[in-house]
Design a protein around this nucleic acid. Structure first.
Lengths: 131, 131
DNA sequence: CAGAATCCCCTACGATACTG
DNA sequence: CAGTATCGTAGGGGATTCTG
């Protein structure tokens, strides 16, 4: 009976590790938070409910597809609520849920750290690239 | 001379917006922070310096390529310091810089929020998926 | 031990067009 | 206005192999 090679054993460990990682709350939230458009949509909604087209205007960088996709994801995660008013033309409003509001302080913390340390990061990069 | 179509104008706006976004400190840091392996390497180094192979053992899910790539990026951003001891076999130690340590509280904040709210997120998902 | 280099796949995103 | 559906592509990441 063949023994596992060292490489095989390492790969088993890798798969286990990654499986655990997928269930790690921190990474789930980080995955949400780090989505390019999530942050922007969240900030846009911080001041109050907005219609789809209003969000599109504010978050002008997103394609319509990405916008809808982002909103769906946020809705699914319970961070954003969708309110449809049946009429012609249809009216759809989005607003943050309580859970969604809870994420804002974290976003602000990241932004604050970023703004006060970005210069150091840029300096470090310049140093690194020069060599 | 042809006037710009509405679609063209929108696209110009999109490009400008995205260009600005690339320079936004918040997004730069978020991009770093959200990298799958950055978080794990950072936490691994939180307790003190480690050798390359030790990090590889702790962050067992990363391939060698990803590990080196991550470490280089962190080094470039001035978050991690690399100390080479010329010998046979070579010895390379990595440790957090002061800047790197500064990132840990943010990571912890995200983790804390995640752990106390992940249940709500999962519940919301279950609700959404059922419909 | 530390790591650079290569190949290759897969999906995330953008562009475009159509519907209620 | 608020979406869905489809297609094409660039890049991130994994597996593998090779060096000092």
């Amino acid at each position: 009976m063949p023994t596992m090679s060292a490489a095989d054993r390492r790969e088993v460990l890798r798969r286990e590790y990654n499986a655990n990682l997928a269930e790690c709350p921190g990474h789930e939230i980080l995955a949400t938070l780090s989505d390019k458009w999530v942050t922007l949509v969240l900030s846009a909604l911080a001041d109050g409910p907005l219609r789809h087209s209003e969000i599109a205007r504010i978050v002008a960088g997103a394609t319509q597809k990405m916008l809808t996709q982002t909103l769906r994801k946020l809705e699914r995660d319970g961070l954003v609520q969708r309110a449809v008013t049946a009429s012609v033309p249809p009216r759809v409003d989005y607003e943050l849920t309580e859970l969604g509001f809870g994420l804002l302080p974290i976003q602000r913390a990241i932004k604050a750290w970023a703004e006060s340390h970005i210069a150091e990061v840029h300096a470090a990069r310049a140093r690194y690239d020069k060599e």
